[in-house]
Design a protein around this nucleic acid. Structure first.
Lengths: 178, 178
DNA sequence: AGCAAATATGCAATTTTTTGCATAAAAATA
DNA sequence: TATTTTTATGCAAAAAATTGCATATTTGCT
């Protein structure tokens, strides 16, 4: 529904290829937007055909051409239009919690392992986000300016991951005196 | 992908109609699973045809029949099988944060209004979840037992909503000295 | 040197979700 | 009494996401 617009926001900040976008989704904004490479390439194709994106093909020695996309004025207009809409509340679908809800049908060890597995992922995520934050905070005031808004979203990622880990501690405490 | 299984978990706890499920999704577990009525009725049909659910039609005076679904042994088996799988990390797609990421293209007041609008929703959600928690904590030990696992998911909802509100405070502080 | 992983792009089929439409009675509110 | 909201169910078309397949080079590791 708004992967198109997520792509517009990213390309407005900095033009890039489909693979560049994939990495940005994975490494930088995965705590608020996720997309597979198939999805991204499909959308880029659609957006290019709709006139939202211009395509610059950079020939590379030996390697296949690098296809760099950037916003057209139409794409910019579409982005502004979308930004003005009021966003619907986030739709959450978390199967880990569905599984926990049905915990009475599972082995306690299975639940513990499930939580432990996710804990590792969230801890990795927290470390990555905190590293990005340190990098941002080390910048001189002037260079921080353009990242003001992305930084606010980064804070959301950090608080959100931390809240998950705090909850996991509660869960482990309960599971351990079962 | 696992709406089917979310429905199985809910019906395992207590049989009910499509509308009952809709209300449970909306009022009780909306912080970890959401589904529209169209989705629910479609899935119920599929699950019934697949032999996962038995249908009991309760005639009502005047009113149209109440269609109550409950798990068959096959449905129960399907649920147990799914519960044993390891759950993939939650896929997050939050358009509010995409919009905030592109905040440099928006009016500050527009952003503030957007945050304020969502803050109201999250505050309502927090109040509802805390009320459910109070209700649970007021139960005598024995009656609390069957709700142990749902209570853990409720805690996730509470911590999660609180983390969002804490973040919104940070955002407001930054936006106000812009 | 050989193999795995990362880089880089895409098509096609299937599944899932969303959106729009449709009906109809009961309960609540003005 | 009239209108709106809630209860209650469902079909069909369109949009979006997932899954499986396919290709080819480069980089890092053993």
């Amino acid at each position: 529904m708004s992967l198109k617009h997520a792509i517009l926001v990213l390309l407005e900040t900095e033009p890039g290829s489909g693979y560049d976008l994939l990495k940005r989704f994975r490494e930088h904004i995965g705590y608020f937007w996720n997309a597979s490479h198939q999805q991204i390439y499909q959308q880029l194709k659609w957006m290019h055909e709709a006139g939202w994106l211009a395509l610059r093909t950079e020939p590379q020695q030996g390697k296949p051409d690098r296809k760099v996309y950037e916003l057209t004025p139409e794409g910019h207009a579409a982005l502004l239009e979308w930004l003005a809409e009021t966003s619907k509340p986030q739709k959450v679908n978390d199967s880990l919690l569905v599984r926990l809800y049905g915990g009475h049908l599972r082995e306690a060890d299975n639940i513990r392992a499930d939580i432990a597995h996710h804990r590792k992922l969230y801890e990795q995520s927290r470390a990555a986000l905190l590293a990005i934050e340190q990098h941002y905070l080390a910048l001189p005031e002037a260079e921080r300016q353009p990242y003001r808004f992305p930084y606010l979203t980064l804070r959301r990622g950090i608080l959100s991951v931390q809240a998950w880990l705090d909850w996991a501690d509660e869960v482990d405490a309960v599971l351990n005196h079962l």
